[in-house]
Amino acid sequence: MQDDPVIRVIAKVLIPTMMLFALYVQFHGDYGPGGGFQAGVIFAAAFILNATVFGFNRGRHVWPARLNLMAITLGVLLYGGTGVATMVLGENFLSYNALSDDPIAGQHLGILLVEFGVGLTVAAVMVALFFAFAGRVSHVRLLNKTRAHEKAQAEAKGTAND
């Protein structure tokens, strides 16, 4: 699949469009269907398409494992942190009215932050899941190749001894 020019060109057009659409879904979720969960999955789909078309290693290169783990934790931290911030400002956990003088503006800010945290976590989790599975597949293939190689070597040794 990596050598097919049609798929490569289409993917190059599709990947940025998908990312843009994910951002639209993320930040337009207040006004239409959408939100952090959906945006996260669409954003992850862009990276998964990149990795399936251009290969596992190039996919891993644009989204390194360390960054991935950090993004997973940062999202949850952002969500929980918003809750703690409202507590510090003297309201209950996750009651966003405290975030601004105007309660409605506070709610808007709170929902934006929380949805962003959800989107970050979901996107990073989905990419991490894909790379964990794809990494296992390529790992097992390598393992089988090594096993076959060892077997062939052992057989070669056996015939040499005869």
Partner: peptide, 17 residues
Amino acid sequence: KIGVPNVVTSVLASYRG
């Protein structure tokens, strides 16, 4: 109270945060 037209978003992120 929230000023968000998509009720699902406001319930998801605020009421049932």
